[in-house]
Every structure is written in C-alpha cells, then in structure tokens.
Design a protein around this nucleic acid. Structure first.
Lengths: 119, 119
DNA sequence: AAAACGTATAAGCTGACGCTTATAGCTTGT
DNA sequence: ACAAGCTATAAGCGTCAGCTTATACGTTTT
C-alpha cells in the first residue's frame, strides 16, 4: 500500500532524518545531536522508517548505524509513473524534471527548520 | 514543506479519492457512491486535498466537481530528484523507470480495497 | 567487576486525525 | 413558494501518532 510509505514520510522530523540518512550513514547518537527531540523519539522514527524499509541498520559495537535505502522509494516512483500515463502532456513535466540536469549539483535536501527548543 | 504533501496522501481513502480524480473529474456525490464513508467524510478529504492544491474545484449548479492537479505533485517530483543527485547510480532506476514506456497502457491506479462497512 | 555508554522498549500523556450525526445554505424542480 | 437535492460546516467522539520519562540490555572502558 503506497499510502503507508507516504505515511512514513509525512512527519517533518522523520522526513528530515531520512534526508540526512540519504546523504550518508549516521549513528543514532549522531542523529540525536542534530535534532531537538530525545533519543527515544529518534529511535522510534528510525523504527518507523525501518518498518517500511526506507532505511537499513547495521550494528557496530555499541552503535547502531542507519542509512537510507534508495529502493525503498521505488513504490513512490512507480506510483508517480501511473500518472505519467493519465496525464501524458501535463506530467511530461515529470519526466522533464527528472531528465533535466540538476541546476545545482550541491543542492541539499529540503532544509527544514527542526523544532525549536522548548524549554 | 514536502512532508505536508506526503501527509495529504498518507490516508488510504484520501489517496484513493485522489487516484479517482486523476483519472477524471468527479462530483462529490459520485465519490460518495464509490466509498464506504459518509458524504461529510468525503468533503473533508476533498478539503484536505484542496488545501495542498492536489485538486481543484468547479461548481456547476448544485454540484461541485473535483479533479486532480498534476502540478500539485511537483514538490514530490522535485524532492525525488534530489535523491537522484545523492544516489547517482542507485536511482538511475528512478529515471529509468520514468523513461521506460509504460508496459501496460490500461494500467489503473492502485486498486485499494476501501474500508469495509463497519456495522 | 564496575561504571559508563549507546540504543531499544515500555508506559503514559496530549493533541491531532478521521469518522460520525446534525444542520445550514444554495440550487433546481414542481 | 415549497420541496428536494447537493455540498459544506459544526460539534462530538474514539483512536492513534509522536512526544516524554523511566528503564533494561548489550558493549566498551577502566
């Protein structure tokens, strides 16, 4: 079910975590340092991403390293592709966007401001 | 914020509605006939899709017709494109999938079983 | 072996979400 | 004018998602 994948990406913090993991592997504690939420919250987000196979885990000593799984996005891509069929002209934009060379090679994932400190 | 768009597509019923509207325009009552939820629930889903501009409305007499807005998916596409940068090889799959001519022209959007009656 | 570290899990709280029923507002038909 | 049809909105309710604190468990360090 595609909605399940969308669900996993629908939380701003969790999406930001995924984006970090897409750049490169991080340990849980490294992620904790980058966000304003507690370690359990991070672990819970990772569990959610793991459940839909958007990330993978590797353990080393007392650390757990996570990284994004590109193939995990496949259902989203396939889903979009359907609309290429329904909207041949309109979503040429879709193909075009993906074909067009990136205007900025150093582009970064959505730079979202994470939660502000709350105390 | 991209997560907002994912949020809008994260509910199975709402996603299914969007998929119907991607095929062609429907009035609210037509949608009501196709789902197991009440008319207000449908209207609420439509309001949610409207809020993120995934659909547009047109009124005619006492009917309200809705249709999907392809451009509404643009942020998702752009977001995916970022990962094309990060995962040059891996997500060639992405471009490839989108380039490849559709294997089945009569493909339908995800056929999800909607909610079962609950009484 | 004891202490410190890194992570996962349990339990509880709170707010948001998706649903329902009730109802109001237009529009059309008689 | 009145009734009927179509849609949106309000209010209330149950569930769940995301957060917190507390804690348990394995690993490393001393």
């Amino acid at each position: 079910m595609t909605s399940t994948l969308f669900r996993a990406l629908s939380d701003p913090t969790r999406l930001a975590i995924f984006e970090l993991l897409a750049r490169h592997e991080h340990s849980v504690s490294e992620l904790v340092d980058k966000f304003e939420v507690t370690q359990p919250a991070i672990s819970q987000h990772l569990a959610a991403l793991l459940a839909v196979r958007l990330v993978s885990t590797r353990r080393s000593g007392r650390n757990a390293y996570y990284r994004a799984r590109p193939e995990g996005l496949r259902p989203v891509i396939d889903w979009l592709r359907l609309y290429q069929n329904f909207w041949p002209e309109k979503l040429d934009s879709l193909k075009a966007v993906l074909d067009k060379p990136s205007p900025d090679k150093s582009a970064k994932p959505t730079k979202e401001k994470h939660h502000a400190p709350r105390h």
